[in-house]
Design a protein around this nucleic acid. Structure first.
Length: 756
DNA sequence: GGAGGCCTCGGAAGG
DNA sequence: CGAGGCCTCC
């Protein structure tokens, strides 16, 4: 496509934003204003103007955004965009860190720890330091360290920073500094970086090696950053450093859609961008092409309540459209039925398709009531968010073998599979090895390799098993460079015993796990075959495959089947960012739920909740429906709810309110069905050890009289029939057939049973 | 090593 | 209430 053609597809402001290629540029892109189009056309325009793609860097936050943009650029610029560096912050800087790894003392094949690995390591360290695991909860410590790294505070600086130490003392967690330094050391010895390290170490690299920084400044003459409002301090510094030479930096974002402060995003980066670059050119994309006037105006009126924002006036030339409908339900379940019913009606009357609908909620726990109702009406749906493919246990197990083959010092991979499948190296031995490694300041694998020298005090039998294990890992390592990814991976999966282990598991879960492993091996095959066509034979080895997937955490694999795709989408508002649907239902608009109770401590927090509501509203093209329940079950207790303040903040003229109830408040809860629940009857239930009468019998009214043929109710499995009994009380077992849960063998001493 | 009971705790989530 | 981690028992 010629430049003139694509420029004609843009409105005046969009065109200016695309054509202003030199110097610092900020593009404030309102929701639905064609942000991705501007970004991609800008890159295409740079290339058409003769800028070598080699000199362009485009950064995004998600793999999905990167992929989408790559496809669109290929569509416009064809193959010219080949040498362009485009990817997530993490993938781009991981690439640079691998190239420059020697400068910071890391192996080129360093491992990337995911959150689970990091937390496991932290848990070990907290135990080794003999700290109280309840005071030092791993997720809390992880967040603290992550926040430090994202503010560019190293472990050493952390220990010298009186202000931070004081904070930790105040929260009664003074040892976090010790955990942090030990954690950093262990990661280093393992040749591993966590997600935050990818940014932190990049900063370190640029700071300590001026020549390296200069090299990349020269390379990246044009820098583009998407979703700039979501950048944290660490990312902010990297961008500024890289742009310092040519100052051809273009940031795109929307302060009104900054919803990630809880993970370190700093809205000030976009609010103060003008101070960083005084000769800045700012373009405001204010025309919304997505939504009706009603939706745009309502969203504007919400965000107008916020104090901190860049001024802009989002407008649309679209039709006025329907009012925003507010629905009131008595309970969370009823809310589900109302929403499902409304979807059903709209489908029939307007001939919409299932995938025109989205149900958005504040917390994942709200999905259940929605699911139930949709299932009752046979409406197909898809829930987003959940465990991704690469987070699954069986996949991580096999990947751990791969990781170890590539980098045997990888501690988390080693601990994960040294005894899986079981090979007689138990926890005691592992603890000894960890201790020896710490004492001698080496990696775990180094200890394993030199058992005699380090002498961790492991008996001869286990020692020989360890030697076998070391030999196996080494043999895998040799294969990595000699064979392609599929050959190596398949060999590892087979000879490690993982495939065999799962093959023998014939439960539905076991079968599914086996299939997942096969899928991973298929991916290896595809990778090996597609790469082997290139001339360089070194492009299809396992280590290169692992580099690709280390940062791939996206759960969604595209399904080609359109029927599969034609479903109602259920997701949190956070994960809906960047998406659009004709019909959007925002549910649970109750005070303390949305806005979240935890976000009412400061103006900043409330404003972020409001931005979240703004994001929810602006996902819709045609119609928004809001709903709230008067009462809701929370952790088994019925609680009463008030409508969200956000409903009140909307201008009445945009709303279609439910008929006012005669008596608006709690009287109407009389019709609420009590939730069915099984109350364990203590007298019929086994007693735990502390309640056991010394030397005596168990509770006399226990299950002595249970006989074959009787019906019993179990707390979890429901009601079932006793098939057979064996043993003598209280060490007897009953085999019970439950219609729901199947055949269960229950030891009566422990069973939560009640005779019906 | 697996099964089952006990205990705890409960936000949103990218790489 | 219910998921997940931990602990205990066999």
């Amino acid at each position: 496509m010629s430049p003139q053609n694509y420029l004609n597809e843009l409105n005046e402001i969009q065109r200016q934003a695309v054509e202003c290629t030199e110097g610092p540029v900020m593009i404030i892109a309102g929701a639905g204003s064609g942000k991705t189009r501007v970004l991609t056309y800008r890159i295409a325009h740079l290339i058409h103007k003769g800028v070598d793609p080699f000199h362009i860097l485009a950064l995004t936050f998600t793999n999905k955004a990167a992929k989408e943009m790559k496809e669109r650029i290929t569509g416009i610029a064809g193959n010219h965009g080949k040498n362009l560096w485009m990817g997530t912050f993490h993938s781009v800087f991981a690439k640079i860190l691998r190239i420059e790894s020697e400068r910071i003392g890391y192996p080129r094949n360093f491992t990337i720890y995911d959150t689970e690995d990091s937390k496991n390591l932290l848990k070990d360290i907290i135990r080794e330091l003999d700290l109280d695991e309840k005071t030092y909860k791993t997720s809390l410590v992880y967040n603290r360290i992550s926040a430090a790294k994202n503010s560019l505070v190293s472990a050493q600086q952390y220990g010298l920073n009186e202000k931070i130490l004081e904070e930790d003392r105040k929260s009664a967690k003074p040892k976090i500094t010790e955990i942090y330094s030990k954690y950093s050391m262990r990661c280093f010895k393992a040749g591993a970086m966590d997600f935050d390290d990818l940014l932190f170490k990049t900063n370190l690299l640029f700071k300590n090696h001026a020549d390296v920084l200069q090299k990349y400044q020269e390379k990246f003459r044009y820098i583009l950053v998407d979703e700039y409002q979501d950048t944290n301090f660490s990312q902010y510094v990297i961008i500024n450093q890289l742009a310092a030479r040519f100052e051809n930096i273009c940031v795109v974002g929307d302060d009104a859609q900054s919803i990630y402060s809880f993970r370190g995003a700093n809205i000030q980066n976009i609010l103060n961008f003008e101070k960083d670059y005084p000769d800045l050119n700012t373009f405001k994309l204010e025309q919304n092409y997505r939504s009706t006037q009603t939706i745009v105006n309502a969203a504007n009126s919400i965000i107008a309540n916020n104090k901190e924002q860049l001024t802009k006036k989002v407008w649309t030339a679209n039709v006025p459209g329907d009012k925003i409908r507010v629905m009131r339900a008595l309970t969370d379940n009823e809310e589900g039925y109302q929403v499902a019913g409304s979807i059903f009606e709209t489908l029939n009357s307007l001939q919409a398709k299932y995938n025109h609908f989205a149900i958005l909620y504040r917390t994942n726990a709200q999905s259940r009531a929605m699911e139930e109702a949709l299932r009752k009406l046979n409406i197909p749906y898809r829930i987003y968010g959940g465990i991704s493919f690469y987070q699954r246990k069986e996949i991580k197990d096999l990947l751990a073998y791969f990781r170890l083959a590539i980098n045997p010092h990888d501690e988390e991979a080693l601990k994960r599979i040294i005894n899986y499948p079981a090979r007689g190296i138990g926890q005691t031995s592992i603890d000894k090895i960890i201790a020896a490694a710490a004492d001698n300041d080496v990696s775990l694998f180094t200890v394993l390799e030199n058992l005699k020298d380090f002498d961790p005090g492991i008996n001869a039998g286990t020692s020989s098993k360890i030697n076998d294990f070391v030999a196996m890992v080494r043999s895998f390592g040799v294969m990595v460079s000699a064979k392609n990814a599929f050959e190596t991976g398949n060999h590892i999966a087979t000879s490690s015993g993982i495939l065999h282990d799962l093959y023998n598991d014939k439960t539905p879960e076991g079968v599914s796990r086996y299939e997942n492993l096969q899928e991973l091996i298929n991916a290896l095959k595809e990778f090996s075959e597609s790469s082997s066509e290139t001339e360089n034979p070194q492009t299809n080895t396992l280590d290169l495959f692992m580099q690709d997937i280390a940062l791939l955490t996206d759960a969604d694999k595209e399904t080609d089947d359109p029927l599969e795709k034609n479903r109602v989408s259920l997701m949190t508002i956070h994960s809906a960012k960047g998406l659009e649907f004709p019909y959007v239902y925002v549910v649970g608009l109750e005070e303390n739920l949305f806005p979240s109770q935890m976000a009412l401590n400061s103006r900043e927090e409330l404003e972020e909740e409001r931005r979240l509501f703004y994001v929810a509203l602006t996902r819709a093209e045609t119609k928004v429906t809001l709903s709230y329940a008067v009462s809701r079950y929370k952790w088994g207790n019925q609680i009463f709810c008030e409508p969200s303040r956000f409903i009140e903040e909307l201008d009445e003229q945009h709303l279609e309110m439910p008929a006012a109830p005669a008596n608006r408040q709690r009287d109407e809860t009389w019709s609420i069905q009590p939730k069915q629940s099984f109350k364990t009857e203590k007298k019929l239930v086994k007693l735990n050890n502390s309640a056991r009468p010394a030397g005596g019998n168990y509770n006399p009214e226990d299950l002595k009289d249970l006989r074959v043929g009787m019906e019993v109710t179990h707390q979890r499995f429901g009601t079932g029939k006793v098939i057979s009994m064996e043993g003598t009380f209280p060490n007897n077992k009953a085999t019970v057939q439950f219609p729901e849960a199947g055949l269960k063998q229950l030891l009566l001493r422990f069973a939560m049973l009640k005779i019906v």
